[in-house]
Amino acid sequence: MTQEFINRESGEIVEIASYRTKAQQEAYQEHKKREAVIKRADSPFVFSEMDAFEGGLSMLSNKELGYFLLMQTYVDYKNMVKADANAKTPMKTKDIAEALNITAQTVNTLLKKLEKLSIIYREKIEISGKNYKAVFINSDYCFRKGIGAEFSSKKTDKAVKVFINSLQDAFKEGLQPADIGFIYKTIQFIHYDTNLLAVNPAERDVEAVKTLSLEALADVMGLSVEETSRKLGNLQWNGMYVYGKTRVGKCLMIKANPYLLYRKAGEFNETLGAEFKVNTK
């Protein structure tokens, strides 16, 4: 059923199919805000810096890089390592060991190395009158944003969203630390608009984008071309592949799954990740 309304300025009679009162519109907008908050809460993420792969990170093995990326998914809005952002106290060494599925001795060795490289630091903090020794990750490597958060004004144009639940689930499903280190190394190449791995990931002109070749990626990984190709074709979680490979003519293009790694601000259009969802059931 349509209704007629008069435009007060022009006097024109307009026929519309539906309308909302001011109160209804305000209620609708509030509902959409709540939906957005719920959606963000269901898909929390940490920003991982793309330009952090020189210096300290170059001293880490793929396995150590994997452990470090996993640690990033446990930071709160001050970059303190906690079981989750709402946890009241920091994770103890034994908690980190449990989360990474390694021994206390191994995690101590790892933390000492990361601290020596200034990738993490430790501080004594006081919460509700009790003292705790907390692990913090240097914000040059990762950070989270939120209203009133310490890094809320930090720029994200050279950072990639790592979806926390996705990466943690992938690890629980059997993705190995060295595999996650492989994933971490690709973050520096994710193109802003397409999620393709590119030599020039900041290029906004699609026609000028130069995709990263399999040979160049293998060189970065310190693996053979064959091993790199197998890795791209094998890494999976939740019934999806972590990377997609598309050949156009002689050019092979590699794309990161946006349900795990995503470059742009805001929510992504599901068509960007359609090839990872189609025929997965």
Results as ranks from 00 to 15, higher is better:
183 I>G: 10
194 T>L: 03
274 A>W: 12
34 R>I: 07
40 R>Y: 10
133 K>Y: 06
202 A>K: 11
28 Y>D: 06
149 A>G: 11
210 K>C: 13
44 P>Q: 05
161 K>H: 09
249 G>Y: 05
190 I>S: 10
163 F>C: 00
192 Y>L: 14
22 K>G: 04
77 Y>D: 08
264 K>V: 05
92 K>A: 05
99 A>I: 02
239 G>R: 08
233 G>Y: 07
91 M>W: 00
225 V>G: 06
255 K>A: 01
246 T>P: 01
96 I>F: 01
185 K>I: 13
61 S>I: 08
235 L>H: 02
239 G>D: 11
214 L>A: 11
135 V>E: 00
36 A>Y: 13
223 L>I: 07
240 M>T: 05
259 Y>P: 00
48 S>P: 05
137 I>N: 07
132 Y>E: 06
153 S>E: 15
52 A>K: 11
33 K>A: 15
166 S>W: 08
178 A>K: 02
268 F>W: 12
150 E>W: 05
115 E>T: 13
89 T>C: 00
275 E>L: 14
42 D>W: 05
120 I>N: 02
245 K>P: 02
214 L>D: 10
237 W>S: 11
43 S>P: 02
105 Q>W: 01
161 K>I: 05
48 S>V: 15
55 G>I: 01
47 F>Y: 14
243 Y>L: 09
20 R>S: 12
25 Q>S: 15
201 P>G: 07
46 V>T: 12
15 E>D: 06
199 V>R: 08
140 D>H: 13
280 T>D: 08
242 V>E: 10
253 M>H: 07
44 P>I: 05
7 N>L: 02
181 G>A: 12
23 A>S: 11
281 K>V: 09
86 N>A: 04
199 V>D: 08
35 E>L: 13
6 I>Y: 12
263 R>L: 06
177 P>F: 01
224 S>Y: 03
243 Y>R: 03
10 S>P: 05
89 T>I: 03
68 F>S: 04
62 N>T: 14
20 R>D: 10
130 K>T: 08
